[in-house]
């Protein structure tokens, strides 16, 4: 187990290095930053001066080396747009994303597993049918559109909830739900089918014949077995949510990493883009590792060799 965790961490580091190279090269392919920063009437010499200042006149491998050397010290360069260290701008926004994605993720898992289990154990009832409809809707509508519609209904028409910004639970409700709906739907579907398989098995019959009340049969004996594919899916959904945050944060004007990265890309604020994508990729790799290690806790038959 420890060896496995170590190996996966090493693999993760290699992934981070590759990701950093790709980001680094991609940001430099997107155009000349110096021209953008310089005032419109700047002379060629002035533009060249900015290049030298930012180190852009050096060959790309050297620039990368400088980037890595500084990144290891926690220095991701200065944001060109905000003229502050990129890492500071990023950390301001990071917790916004954590709050939004974290809420959406927890809501997806709890609701998805709950509805999926109820649906599987009450097959064919109104609860199962409406659960299926809810899942179908969630999987057919894009998150940003759901977001806009929710704003229309709950903010514009009913005036119940704010349209944008980050300030407590009332601001969190709409964006987190528009992100979570799709994930709830997929987690619910997988839980439902996995649970249905499990409930047909011999150990469930055994659990019943022992005299266990039905809630123990379902929630203790059934669910823990049914969770294995759900955990695998949850990892994927978390990645989706992080990706989706970029759009939803823009729809709801939520100060998070996603909207920050999009703005930074438009502004060619490449230190900030680099830092942001870098952070997200580390976050994702770490989460994947945690998900993989979780399997072992749920199913003792899984060993890490």
């Amino acid at each position: 187990m420890r060896r496995y965790a170590l190996r996966r961490t090493l693999l993760g580091i290699i992934t981070v290095v590759i990701v950093s190279m790709i980001i680094f090269i991609a940001t430099r392919l997107s155009g000349d930053v110096a021209i953008l920063i310089a005032p419109p009437d700047a002379s060629d010499a002035e533009i060249q001066e900015i290049r030298v200042q930012l180190g852009l006149n050096k060959p790309i491998p050297y620039q990368y080396y400088v980037f890595v050397r500084n990144a290891l010290k926690g220095d991701f360069g200065r944001s060109i747009r905000y003229n502050r260290p990129a890492i500071d701008v990023l950390l301001d926004r990071f917790f916004g994303t954590v709050e939004l994605v974290g809420t959406a993720f927890i809501v997806s898992i709890v609701t998805g597993v709950l509805l999926g289990t109820l649906s599987a154990t009450r097959r064919g009832t109104w609860l199962d049918q409406s659960g299926k409809l809810f899942a179908l809707l969630g999987q057919s509508m894009p998150g940003f559109w759901v977001g806009i519609m929710l704003i229309l209904v709950f903010s514009v028409n009913l005036g119940l909830l704010p349209t944008s910004g980050r300030d407590g639970i009332s601001h969190l409700l709409l964006p987190s739900f528009s992100m979570a709906w799709y994930s709830i739907a997929s987690i619910m579907r997988v839980t439902r089918s996995s649970m249905m398989d499990v409930m047909d098995s011999e150990y469930i019959k055994m659990a019943r014949s022992k005299g266990n009340p039905e809630y123990i049969v379902i929630w203790k004996h059934g669910l823990k077995n049914a969770l294995i594919p759900v955990i695998a899916l949850a990892g994927v959904q978390l990645a989706n949510l992080l990706g989706g945050a970029v759009i939803i944060e823009n729809v709801f004007n939520w100060p998070g990493l996603g909207s920050m990265i999009v703005d930074a890309i438009y502004a060619r604020d490449y230190p900030l883009v680099q830092a942001g994508v870098f952070f997200i990729s580390i976050f994702l790799i770490a989460l994947n590792l945690i998900v993989d290690l979780l399997f072992g806790f749920i199913d003792p038959r899984i060993t890490y060799e």
Binding site: E202, Y203, K205, M206, H221, K224, N225, R301
Partner: peptide, 12 residues
């Protein structure tokens, strides 16, 4: 039950 390999819950 019939199948001893399946009648105990594998995760407890």
């Amino acid at each position: 039950l019939q199948d001893p390999l399946m009648s105990l819950n594998p995760v407890y």
